[in-house]
């Protein structure tokens, strides 16, 4: 029988779980819970996706041109 009262306890582990930092026995217990609990599965998946979205949308690796010019001028690196 699935007991939803456990969900709150497992929530605290989800972040470490996504980082692969849970001790093996807690990880196994969480994974067993996830197989039964669709709600916790949704929380895990949407949290993973949330992090991914921030990563993929921050890929722009250039400074705006004016910012770059003024920075190098201020640091006297523009000669």
């Amino acid at each position: 029988m699935h007991n939803h009262n456990q969900c709150g306890d497992y929530l605290a582990y989800i972040s470490d779980y996504l980082d692969g930092e849970l001790p093996p026995e807690i990880c196994a217990s969480l994974e067993a819970h996830l197989r039964e609990c669709v709600n916790c599965r949704v929380v895990v998946n949407t949290m993973r996706k949330t992090i991914e979205l921030y990563q993929v949308t921050s890929g722009d690796e250039t400074l705006p041109e004016g910012v770059h010019t003024r920075l190098f001028a201020r640091l006297k690196l523009d000669d």
Partner: peptide
Amino acid sequence: ALEIVDWCCLPEQELVSTETREKLNEAA
């Protein structure tokens, strides 16, 4: 209470749209 909605299945272009980017900033 937690919002339990599985939105992972939304199309990729919706997930990285300009509007979504604004929401990401807003959330942060």
